[in-house]
C-alpha cells in the first residue's frame, strides 16, 4: 500500500483548510494545534485557512477575528481567508480591517449567505477585494448534500456560475475550491477559464481513471492548479495521493504542491 512521502520539497502549501467548528458534524483536530499537527505530519509549510464558524455566523467577521487571534502565535504557518457576507451590514469596513490584519484572500459563500453570485452586492465585494489586492475564493460545497443536516443548504455552487462572474470581472483573481470539473480536454469552458486569472484546487478531482486533474493541468497550465486538503472536514492523504499519481513532471508537481499558492498568497495586498 502506497503511503504519502513528502516528495515535493519544503514549500508545500495547503490552499484549502479550515479552523473552527461546524454545527452539523463534530470535527476533530480543528483548532490551531490540530491543524498544525496535520501540517507537520504531511510536511506542509503553510496552510491557507478560513474560519469554519464564520460560514454560519450572522456576522461572519467574528469568525475572521477569531482565526486571526488563534493563529497569531504561528502566523508564519498560516495564510488567512477573510469570510464576509456582502449582503450583511458593514462588510466594507470589515474587509478593510481584514486587509489591515494581513488576511490574504476573500472567501464568499453565496448559497449559505443567501445572495446571487451575479448580484450587485457580490460584484461590489469582488471589486473591493480586487482593489485591495485580495484574490476571491469560492467553495462549491462544504459537505456532500446527500448527508446534509436538515437545516443545511441543499445546493452546491455551480463552477460555471463562478466562471461567468470571473468573466464579468476579468481583473479580479479567483480561486475555486471543492470543484469537480469533468470537462473534456477540448471544452470551451477550459478556454474561457484559461483566459482569466483563475485558480482551481484539486481535492475533488482525480489523477487516475478519468484523470481529470491531468486534463485540468493541460487546459489551464500547471501554474493554475493548487493543492488543497479540505482538512479538517476531509481527510488529507487523498490530496497528496492525487499529486503523487498525477502524470506530470516534478516541476509541475512542485508548482501545484506550493509554488502556485506561494505566488498567489504571498503577494502583498495593496
Amino acid at each position: 500500500m502506497s503511503t504519502y512521502k513528502p516528495l515535493f520539497g519544503p514549500g508545500i502549501v495547503d490552499a484549502h483548510a479550515f479552523i473552527g467548528n461546524w454545527p452539523f458534524r463534530r470535527l476533530r483536530n480543528n483548532d490551531v494545534a490540530g491543524v498544525l499537527a496535520m501540517m507537520d505530519k504531511f510536511g506542509i509549510n503553510v496552510s491557507c485557512v478560513a474560519s469554519a464558524d464564520a460560514i454560519l455566523y450572522r456576522d461572519s467577521h467574528d469568525g475572521n477575528r477569531m482565526i486571526h487571534e488563534q493563529t497569531r502565535g504561528a502566523a508564519d504557518r498560516f495564510n488567512l481567508y477573510a469570510t464576509l457576507n456582502p449582503a450583511y451590514a458593514g462588510w466594507q469596513r470589515d474587509l478593510r480591517e481584514c486587509v489591515d490584519l494581513g488576511f490574504k484572500a476573500l472567501r464568499l459563500y453565496p448559497i449559505y449567505h443567501g445572495y446571487a453570485i451575479d448580484s450587485p452586492e457580490c460584484l461590489s465585494i469582488v471589486d473591493a477585494a480586487t482593489e485591495a489586492g485580495l484574490p476571491v475564493s469560492f467553495t462549491c460545497r462544504i459537505e456532500d448534500a446527500r448527508q446534509r443536516h436538515w437545516m443545511d443548504v441543499i445546493d452546491n455552487l455551480d463552477p460555471e456560475r463562478v466562471l461567468a462572474l470571473a468573466e464579468q470581472r476579468p481583473n479580479a483573481t479567483f480561486i475555486l475550491l471543492e470543484a469537480i470539473l469533468g470537462w473534456g480536454r477540448e471544452s470551451d469552458l477550459w478556454k474561457r477559464m484559461h483566459a482569466l486569472p483563475f485558480y482551481v484546487e484539486l481535492s475533488r478531482m482525480t489523477s487516475v481513471l478519468d484523470k481529470s486533474i491531468e486534463v485540468m493541468v493541460g487546459a489551464l497550465g500547471p501554474e493554475r492548479v493548487l493543492l488543497g486538503t479540505g482538512y479538517p472536514f476531509k481527510t488529507p492523504s487523498p490530496a497528496f495521493l492525487k499529486l503523487q499519481c498525477l502524470n506530470a513532471d516534478e516541476e509541475t508537481k512542485t508548482l501545484i504542491a506550493g509554488g502556485n499558492a506561494s505566488r498567489l498568497f504571498d503577494a502583498d495586498p495593496v
Binding site: Y4, T206, S207, V208, T235, S237, P238, F240, C245
Partner: peptide, 12 residues
C-alpha cells in the same frame, strides 16, 4: 471508483 480518496481515508 474513488481511488485516491478510498485509499487515503484508510491511511489517515
Amino acid at each position: 471508483m474513488t481511488m485516491e480518496g478510498g485509499v487515503g481515508k484508510i491511511l489517515d
